[in-house]
Amino acid sequence: MALTRNFKHTVIERVERDPAFAKALLDEAATLFLNGEAETARLILRDLVNATLGFEQLAQATHKPSKSLHRMLSPQGNPSMDNLAAIFSAVRQRLGVGFEVHAVQAHA
């Protein structure tokens, strides 16, 4: 019989013991959004919210209803840029990190 673990619990436990992992998830979510992979980015961001702030605390930080935030970060979610910026800001503050953008030049 194979042993299985709930993925959400695995992510939460890893984030709690490994701050670098949490930062890497945030970086990956931002990179995916900027590269046009919004659905995957929302799912990673949702898992990160669950592992750090939780949706109730995120609702307080963003002044948005928790249910709305859940919908925004669902696979079919469509958060506005303002809401997305508020979510990233709240998670970034919780993790105590900033963003630094590095441009890559396209070759003609």
Rank of each mutant, 00 (worst) to 15 (best):
M1I: 05
L3C: 07
L3F: 06
T4G: 07
T4V: 10
T4R: 07
T4Q: 12
R5M: 13
N6V: 13
F7H: 15
F7M: 14
F7R: 11
V11L: 02
V11A: 03
I12Y: 06
R14S: 06
R14A: 07
V15M: 12
E16G: 06
E16V: 00
E16Y: 02
R17C: 03
R17W: 02
D18V: 02
F21L: 02
A22T: 13
A22C: 10
A24G: 00
A24M: 06
L25I: 00
L25Y: 00
L26V: 03
D27N: 12
D27K: 13
A30N: 10
A30R: 14
A30Y: 13
T31N: 15
L32H: 09
L34A: 12
N35L: 15
G36F: 05
E37S: 11
A38N: 03
A38V: 03
E39C: 00
T40A: 12
T40M: 06
A41F: 04
R42G: 07
R42K: 15
L43F: 07
I44W: 01
L45F: 03
R46S: 06
D47V: 09
L48T: 00
L48Q: 00
L48R: 04
L48C: 02
V49P: 02
N50F: 10
N50T: 15
N50A: 10
A51T: 06
A51F: 05
A51Q: 05
L53C: 05
G54A: 04
G54S: 05
F55W: 10
F55N: 06
F55H: 08
F55Y: 13
F55P: 09
E56P: 01
E56K: 02
E56H: 05
A59N: 07
Q60R: 13
A61K: 05
T62G: 06
T62C: 14
H63Q: 15
H63C: 09
P65E: 09
S66K: 15
K67E: 11
S68G: 15
S68L: 10
S68E: 09
S68A: 14
H70Y: 14
R71V: 09
R71S: 11
M72W: 07
L73I: 02
L73H: 03
S74K: 13
S74W: 12
P75C: 03
Q76L: 10
Q76N: 12
Q76A: 14
Q76R: 12
G77M: 00
G77N: 02
P79T: 00
P79Q: 05
P79I: 07
P79K: 04
S80I: 07
D82E: 13
D82H: 08
D82L: 08
D82P: 01
N83W: 01
L84G: 04
L84R: 01
L84S: 03
L84C: 02
A85E: 10
A85T: 11
A85I: 08
A86Y: 11
F88M: 05
F88H: 10
S89C: 06
A90F: 08
V91W: 04
V91G: 01
R92M: 13
Q93Y: 09
G96T: 14
G96D: 08
V97W: 01
E100A: 05
E100D: 10
V101T: 06
A103W: 07
A103K: 11
A103Q: 08
Q105K: 11
Q105T: 08
Q105M: 10
H107S: 14
H107K: 15
A108F: 07
A108H: 07
